[in-house]
Computed example of a mutant assay.
Amino acid sequence: MATIIDFFKDYLLKEKNYSVHTVAAYESDLLSFQSFNMSNFEQESIVFVNYSQIRTWIVFLVDEGLSSSSVNRKMASLKAFYRFLLKTKQITVNPMLKHKSLKASKVLQIPFSEKEVVSVLDRIENVDGFELVRNKMIIDLLYATGMRRAELINLKVADVDFSNNTIKVLGKRSKERIVPMLSVVKEGLLSYSQQRADLAEIFDDEFLFLTKKGVKLSNSFVYRLINSYFSTASEKVKKSPHVLRHTFATHLLNNGADLNSVKELLGHSSLASTQVYTHSSLSELKKVYEKSHPRNKK
């Protein structure tokens, strides 16, 4: 029998066009709150709750060591859930109405330097064999386009248009964008496609990137791949696909790209999202400014 959470999931998927990954995260948060509610208040349903119950959960999460940003993400799931209940007239009062997000300290994403990226790319320049060619292509594509890990994993063979040198990317909330394909990326994808065609078996045929067993890549696979390759070139604490996306944006801005163009390439809905990537370009600009301005000459 379908539960209210199931109806909420259908609403997010079909009406809000949220990704399966996002909906799964919302469901996980709601089930966690439901379990906490049952243990602490002996209340199985989370439809009718008051804010004091939610606040008790927040205190519990903080005591468990969750960061403010992680707690805020869980609260965002509750906010969406209770807005849905209000909209569908399941409740008349939203218990999250007066909730204020916890203040989260901003974690500065440190991009890879151009030297670090070149070091990795040089090391994988002339590789052979399906897995090595695929790995090279994944790194090349993430750095050349700035696409998200999930976007890369869900790329389909049909999304690559070799005649127009473009790639169709399905972003958050099923929003499509077209990104240009550099010549080096095109050459790499053609090489990878030949290797892919020689696999003994292919099960997930529509997806572009596969394991050697012919199945779609996982999130953890791509994370481990980037972490492994960049561990040999960088001493930065975080080495992930998202850092490579951050690197793409930063390097474009450092080399003169305008913010609006980077916004479109990244698939952001607003400039505010893109502006978090400008700190490094501002740092670069400061160096040029201090070096060039007459008032700073000695």
Results as ranks from 00 to 15, higher is better:
residue 288 V to M: 13
residue 255 N to S: 09
residue 92 T to N: 10
residue 94 N to I: 02
residue 194 Q to E: 11
residue 145 T to P: 02
residue 116 E to S: 05
residue 20 V to L: 15
residue 86 L to S: 06
residue 33 F to C: 03
residue 232 T to Y: 08
residue 291 K to A: 12
residue 108 L to V: 15
residue 292 S to C: 09
residue 93 V to F: 03
residue 26 Y to L: 01
residue 137 M to R: 02
residue 172 K to R: 12
residue 45 S to D: 11
residue 70 S to R: 12
residue 271 L to S: 05
residue 190 L to S: 11
residue 41 F to K: 10
residue 159 D to Y: 12
residue 48 F to Y: 13
residue 130 F to D: 03
residue 252 L to V: 13
residue 20 V to E: 15
residue 207 F to T: 02
residue 89 K to P: 01
residue 149 R to G: 02
residue 164 N to L: 11
residue 36 F to V: 05
residue 149 R to D: 07
residue 94 N to C: 01
residue 260 N to Y: 15
residue 205 D to C: 11
residue 132 L to E: 13
residue 132 L to S: 02
residue 43 Q to P: 06
residue 241 P to K: 14
residue 132 L to D: 13
residue 26 Y to E: 05
residue 234 S to F: 09
residue 241 P to Y: 02
residue 187 E to W: 03
residue 139 I to H: 00
residue 196 R to F: 02
residue 79 K to S: 05
residue 201 E to D: 14
residue 101 S to E: 07
residue 202 I to C: 06
residue 244 L to S: 10
residue 125 E to R: 15
residue 147 M to E: 06
residue 78 L to V: 14
residue 245 R to C: 00
residue 24 A to Q: 14
residue 169 V to D: 04
residue 270 S to V: 10
residue 153 I to G: 00
residue 60 F to P: 06
residue 287 K to F: 08
residue 112 F to M: 12
residue 100 K to I: 01
residue 81 F to C: 06
residue 131 E to Q: 12
residue 83 R to A: 00
residue 237 V to Q: 10
residue 270 S to M: 04
residue 146 G to P: 04
